[in-house]
Design a protein around this nucleic acid. Structure first.
Length: 830
RNA sequence: GCCCAGGUGGCGAAAUCGGCAAACGCACCAGCUUUAGGAGCUGGCGAUCGCAAGAUCAUGUGGGUUCAACUCCCACCCUGGGCACCA
């Protein structure tokens, strides 16, 4: 027998599988779609942390193949976006060239692991044949009125020179470069994601979706649904009302002031009628100069200015002074709040700072009815109403409903559901992204504004955005022009604006002069639907063939980083639901089961990074130990979803295990001549059961350890039955496929092990004849006795009491109770 | 501040319908083998006491429920992640 040489056998089997299409069996009755979050092909290549999720899906994919499923397991590239563009700028090459180079490196690295990827289905978001359909989806969204041009203030990264969506921020910093973003009013395209908020929330149902609770919670919080009421207050002396949104109308008898956001529309439109307009303007000016950072460093210290106007509380006719303060945000609710300082900490702080009255209207469980003077007294979560007219004595939850009914009946308010989630800011002032399939036509704009057009001449989106005309589907894709200067301008228009030949075109509707949109789509666009394209990657007529879509969707298993919980996963669900609405797909949700991959940290406990010089390259590990070892190690190192530090010594441990498996070949003998060892049979079938269940439940670490126990046991035998050793090879094969197939062929099989059947455990063999029964005295272990597995209670108790080791603890004591747990223990209570 | 996940040997961890705490692996120690080894094999490896048999203690802290608690309940501490002046 020659030595275990992974280098030689791994190459050999990778070629064999590819050539014989071993894992491309797509005509079986049951299907399984295993999906990885496709990578961003950066210039740095892979480190050992990246493939962990891919290994897990590959183990699952091979397991499902062995169980007789058709398995779809594709891979592709998410290659548009800022990092690719920045990398290209740095290396002074066109992003296209940089991206192709990086993809080649990534692909070569991935191939060394022996994954079951069907490379015939490879997609890249930057291929015109792919982004044609990204543009098509946008066009459909536009047609349905779900895309609109906006000039509202948005997050602007001064370093990347582009706008960013809320999902692209970490706190108030650019997720890519860490620069603090500014709020700038910019022209941009926005998708009406909030129209889908309710469905995005409701379908996050643990019953329907096999997602980790953690990710469901994160998305729920991000969507941030709240139930409240919009209340309109009349303003004294002028013919206007101010509308506020509140979730606590029950406390409204305690309202003593109103605060407006300095940058709100209401203020912008009415500042000139404020009696104190000079001070107000100064305050607006001062606020606009403050960055987010300044405001955070001020902590919760409240500042503000009185407008000179009073709003009237319609409940009791009380005059409430109207202020401006920067703690009220223009983008939240209506951009104005009603101040109830007795029962809201922020309102309390503001009232203290401005010297406004504080009224108690809720009594908490402590029964305290004294005037509210300290922040700790601010009662928010429970209690009974006082000083509140017809609400007095009610619990706050009942009061809330009663006053909502009252306000609605009186006609000065309306129940409203609010979401924290905002619409999706969808344009970037960058070169390396999908161009928008839109043309601006002044002629059409005039026509729409004048109202002189036929019904059905313009789509919903065209009417919503006068002048913007969608391209015709047959003219897609609109390719990125090849240019020399694709550097960012920073003017607010994208680099494409500089290419006049490309920008100037004809209106697809009327043929008059038009100009193209020069922003591009964000990186998230292409990744919001790629899982559909794998199913039908070369279709030129449709995004996906309807029958194929029905055959494969939904994705059965989706594995990737948790950082996408509120970004990619939200965007993809949103688009999927839209595609469902236009009948392009047949499922309401795209991803049935979702599991996040735990990070692999460097051996020093820090994040693997060039900066710390602690990056481990998978190529090195594979050349030293082999691909099967790194696969097995990453599955063995700990619970899959947990962050764990890398240990190269740990890899050598699993390599030793594989060597042991290899050496066992020598002991294999023909099953007919050699009688099966009952104890080993028992353990073997227990292991089959454990490995099967563990793979299904993503507990790979315990699956591997149970195989180690089996192999240690086999190592004690002088001879092994071929049939037993073969079963070991099959259950090991998803983890260490190269070795498994090599052993399989050495055992005389002509076909790949992956065309075999996954073994079923034999329940008879698993049943133990004899067991160790634990004997406790007052819950403390005193002895173990070997008894028949199905021992009767009375007999077990007698044997336990008779135990020599137990006797000394019983002498002179009264036995009060004896507890018998079948198959486990006897506990003697004295 | 709010939400989520977690806290077990020197390290990664295992055990959760309450029932033998530390499986499996790493590191370490001793011995065998070897010219040698960073190779292989055998044994040891939570703490304290003890020559030993064994005893006692031990799963972040403090209580509670129970014959029995890593597991359930209450309060608190710490770590990681998310959100955050969201009205």
């Amino acid at each position: 027998m020659n030595k275990y040489n992974p280098k030689a056998i791994e190459k050999k089997w990778q070629k064999y599988w590819e050539k014989n299409k071993v894992y491309k069996k797509y005509n079986r009755p049951k299907k399984f779609y295993a999906l990885d979050m496709f990578p961003y092909p950066s210039g740095a290549g892979l480190h050992v942390g990246h493939p962990k999720g891919y290994i897990a899906t590959d183990v699952t994919a091979r397991f499902k193949m062995l169980q007789g499923y058709s398995v779809l397991h594709p891979m592709g590239w998410d290659a548009f976006g800022l990092p690719a563009e920045n990398y290209a700028l740095k290396m002074k090459m066109h992003p296209r060239i940089a991206v192709d180079k990086n993809i080649a490196v990534f692909k070569k690295q991935l191939e060394m692991f022996g994954f079951t990827y069907d490379w015939d289905r490879e997609v890249s978001t930057t291929d015109p044949g792919y982004y044609k359909w990204t543009q098509w989806i946008f066009l459909k969204l536009f047609e349905k009125g779900l895309a609109y041009e906006s000039h509202e203030p948005v997050n602007w990264c001064p370093s990347c020179k582009t706008v960013l969506s809320n999902e692209d921020l970490e706190g108030n910093e650019c997720e890519r470069c860490g620069t603090v973003v500014e709020q700038r009013p910019m022209r941009q395209w926005v998708l009406k994601m909030t129209d889908y908020a309710e469905r995005l929330l409701n379908d996050l149902d643990k019953e329907k979706l096999d997602w980790e609770a953690q990710i469901i919670e994160q998305q729920k919080n991000w969507i941030g649904r709240s139930e409240g009421i919009d209340i309109a207050y009349t303003i004294k002396g002028i013919d206007k009302t101010i509308t506020v949104y509140t979730t606590r109308p029950d406390t409204n008898f305690g309202a003593t002031f109103v605060v407006l956001a300095p940058d709100s529309n209401f203020v912008a439109e009415n500042v000139d009628i404020f009696p104190n307009k000079e001070e107000v303007k100064k305050y607006i000016e001062a606020t606009s100069k403050k960055t987010e950072l300044d405001r955070i460093s001020e902590g919760r210290k409240k500042t503000g200015v009185f407008t000179g106007l009073y709003a009237v509380n319609n409940l009791n006719g009380k005059k409430m002074p109207m202020y401006l303060s920067d703690f009220v945000l223009a983008t939240v609710g209506t951009g104005a709040v009603v101040g109830v300082p007795g029962h809201d900490t922020r309102d309390f702080e503001f009232a203290k700072a401005m010297g406004i009255d504080i009224i108690r209207v809720v009594v908490g469980s402590d029964g305290d009815v004294s005037p509210i003077e300290r922040a700790e007294q601010v009662q928010e979560e429970e209690g009974k109403m006082i000083n509140s007219d017809f609400l007095n004595g009610l619990d706050i939850f009942d009061a809330k409903e009663k006053i909502k009914d009252y306000i609605e009946k009186k006609g000065f308010g309306k129940r409203k559901i609010n979401y924290k989630m905002r619409d999706w800011v969808f344009s970037r002032q960058k070169y390396w992204g999908e161009p928008f399939p839109l043309v601006f036509c002044q002629h059409c704009a005039d026509k729409i504004k004048s109202g002189q057009f036929k019904k059905g001449e313009f789509s919903q989106g065209e009417l919503l955005n006068p002048g913007w005309i969608g391209m015709r589907e047959k003219d897609l894709p609109l390719e990125l022009p090849k240019v020399k200067s694709y550097e960012t301008t920073g003017t607010g228009e994208g680099p494409l604006a500089g290419i006049t030949k490309w920008v100037n075109t004809r209106c697809p509707k009327c043929g008059e002069k038009g100009r193209r949109e020069t922003n591009t789509m964000p990186q998230w666009a292409g990744s919001s639907w790629y899982y559909l394209r794998y199913i039908d990657p070369k279709n030129k007529k449709a995004l996906i063939d309807k029958k194929k879509e029905k055959d494969w969707m939904p994705v059965d298993l989706y594995v990737g980083g948790i950082e996408h919980a509120t970004r990619h996963l939200l965007y993809a669900r949103f688009w999927h639901k839209f595609l469902f609405d236009i009948k392009a797909v047949s499922t309401k949700e795209p991803f049935k089961k979702l599991i996040h991959v735990g990070l692999i940290q460097a051996e020093d406990g820090r994040k693997m990074s060039k900066r710390w010089g602690n990056v481990i390259n998978p190529d090195d590990i594979i050349s030293q130990f082999g691909a099967d070892s790194i696969r097995l190690y990453e599955m063995f190192m700990g619970p899959f979803t947990q962050s764990i530090s890398w240990s190269t010594a740990g890899v050598s441990g699993v390599r030793k295990f594989l060597e042991k498996v290899w050496r066992l070949q020598e002991r294999v003998t023909s099953g007919k001549k050699y009688k099966a060892n009952q104890k080993l049979q028992n353990l073997l079938h227990k292991t089959i059961k454990k490995v099967t269940e563990d793979i299904e439940n993503f507990r790979f670490n315990t699956a591997v350890s149970s195989m180690m126990i089996l192999v240690n046991e086999m190592d004690r035998e002088e001879k092994l039955r071929a049939a037993d050793y073969e079963l070991l090879a099959v259950i090991l094969s998803p983890f260490a496929p190269h070795m498994a197939d090599e052993l399989w062929s050495r055992l005389g099989h002509k076909k790949s092990i992956f065309l075999e059947k996954w073994p079923k455990w034999n329940p008879k063999l698993i049943r133990d004849e004899e067991i160790e029964l634990v004997v406790q005295v007052n819950g403390k272990l005193r002895d173990r006795i070997t008894v028949a597995a199905d021992i009767a209670e009375a007999e077990a108790k007698t044997s336990a009491l008779a135990s020599e080791r137990v006797q000394p603890f019983l002498t002179g004591k009264e036995i009060r109770k004896v507890i018998f747990v079948p198959g486990r223990l006897v506990n003697i209570v004295i």
